[in-house]
Amino acid sequence: MSESILSIRGLRKQYASGTDALKSVDLDIKRGEIFALLGPNGAGKTTLISIICGIVTPSGGEVLIDGKNWQRHFREARTRIGLVPQELTMDVFEPLISTVSFSRELFGRRPDPKRIEEILRELSLWDKRKTILKELSGGMKRRVMIAKALAHDPDILFLDEPTAGVDVELRRDMWNMVRRLREHGTTIILTTHYIEEAEEMADRVGVINKGELILVEEKTELMKKLGRKVLHLQLAEPLAAIPPTLAEWNPRLSEDGSTLTYEFDAKAERTGIPSLLTAMRDAGIAFKDLDTHQSSLEDIFVGLIHHSKAAA
């Protein structure tokens, strides 16, 4: 078996309205990982998931599940996939337990009350099993959506913005559940527009914006970037160019020549700041003000989106 359980190749979607929701996305999901798809509203996250799950028809490209085309082998593909959609949509007149059993059988699985009980207990839904769905709170409904998605024991689980509008307790429960599922070998793909969520949960993070995947990276790599700091120096006199004596530090000069930016590893023994400042004094460059700040995932994210906008 290859390392990637799911391969997305050149996936495109243009809606009838003309919106280009996905512009040729390529992505490989590794077996057993938690992958976070991070992007602002309207980035195309739901569209991507919906195409993989068979709810939206792609305009081009394909999805492979263990190397098999997801449309040609749709039975196998769909039996293996579970989806928790973004919206809380359910048959509100049904009792909780019947709707979860329904999901299991719909996906072709033998009825298994024991397994359903396990799932409901794990999601703290067992006491409410006889409740009619419309009587449940929003948080409970979210749990029901997860129970439905897990009812047929999928080994690939999609969670579309699972924690949007969810309280702290449920968020914690959900993250614990996701971790437990991963321990049992389930591959998890979740979308979010909260950076902290990607940071806390994921093994890898993909950043999507305007239908384009602009970065896919190990979270630890992102965290390394996160550990970096930036020093801004407001110069007393604008510079035309960086003097050769400062090249060693590789600083960046703003367009108007008034700000010098130096990026450094805050955790390193030598940040290079004292030597840089000494070199500047020797070169006769004075500054009015300085500040340092952490480059957060948010910064990286905003920077990336900025980049892709500038490139477009």
Binding site: C53, G54, I55, F74, R75, E76, A77, R78, T79, I81, L83, P85, E87, T89, M90, D91, V92, S103, L106, F107, G108, K148
Partner: peptide, 13 residues
């Protein structure tokens, strides 16, 4: 109408 069609469409049917 309610959106629960998502489940039918995503099922191996």
């Amino acid at each position: 109408f309610t959106g629960t069609i998502y489940e039918i469409l995503s099922a191996p049917l």
